[in-house]
């Protein structure tokens, strides 16, 4: 949990090894032409590690081998063709990738797939189907709780959890506990109405 910087002094020393080009970065470095180097670490840089994992996805046992860097979201979308979970930011800012891990709402974009090893993953595809909708899915249809629909899988997964966590007691509480899911079409009042409708059915 110690999120300290790695040893940056090492990085800057590294930066002096080789001249000729300026350092590169996520989006290429804002560099003056007086070329300070950005050579890669010549010491042993780790190589890509691929590990076998077992996941229980929507009740199905799946075995696959993943790059340790792959997020659960990318594995769902790229490897398992479960594209219901959406990438809206890739940095835990929008909630469109929300899935349930062992029943807990979780951002799949900030979860490494290896961390989901042995856990039960529920995605929107596993929640219900067109002819067997989950009450939350039905409530979203009934209350027009979406427009473009892109944030909807995350909203629905979050809505279910909002109720199971016990945070759907009032409109104000629903609003607060649904605030981790951005909706740019701004269907918010309809989403609150949908959560209320589903709450009635889920709590029976």
């Amino acid at each position: 949990m110690a999120d300290r910087s790695p040893s940056f002094d090492q990085v800057s020393r590294r930066g002096l090894i080789k001249g000729g080009v300026a350092g590169a970065a996520v989006t290429s470095v804002q560099a003056k032409a007086q070329v300070r180097g950005g050579a890669e670490n010549t010491a042993a840089e780790p190589t890509v590690q691929r590990v076998p994992i077992t996941l229980d996805i929507n009740g199905q046992h799946r075995e696959l081998t993943v790059d340790t860097r792959s997020t659960l979201l990318d594995v769902l979308r790229h490897d398992l063709e479960l594209t219901g979970s959406k990438k809206g930011c890739d940095h835990g800012q929008c909630g469109a990738c929300t899935v349930h891990l062992d029943g807990t709402r979780t951002l799949s974009c900030l979860t490494l797939a290896v961390q989901a090893e042995g856990k039960a993953v529920t995605t929107i595809e596993g929640l219900g189907s067109p002819d067997n909708l989950h009450p939350m899915q039905r409530a979203f249809v009934d209350n027009d709780a979406f427009q473009c629909g892109y944030c909807t899988p995350g909203q629905i997964m979050s809505g279910v959890a909002c109720i199971t966590e016990g945070h759907a007691g009032s409109d104000a509480e629903i609003r607060e506990y649904m605030s981790g899911n951005l909706c740019r079409c701004a269907a918010y009042p309809n989403i609150v109405a949908a959560v209320k409708q589903a709450r009635g059915e889920m709590e029976g």
């Binding site: 949990m1 110690a2 999120d3 300290r4 910087s5 790695p6 970065a25 996520v26 840089e45 780790p46 340790t68 860097r69 997020t71 890739d90 940095h91 835990g92 951002l107 900030l110 979860t111 490494l112 961390q115």
Partner: peptide, 23 residues
């Protein structure tokens, strides 16, 4: 680097701000 929830670590690794050799 140690990590648990990953909400800082994975975020900043994607940005190449943190680059641990081991997690």
């Amino acid at each position: 680097q140690y990590f648990a929830g990953g909400t800082t670590m994975v975020d900043l690794m994607k940005l190449d701000v943190m680059k641990p050799a081991r997690l």
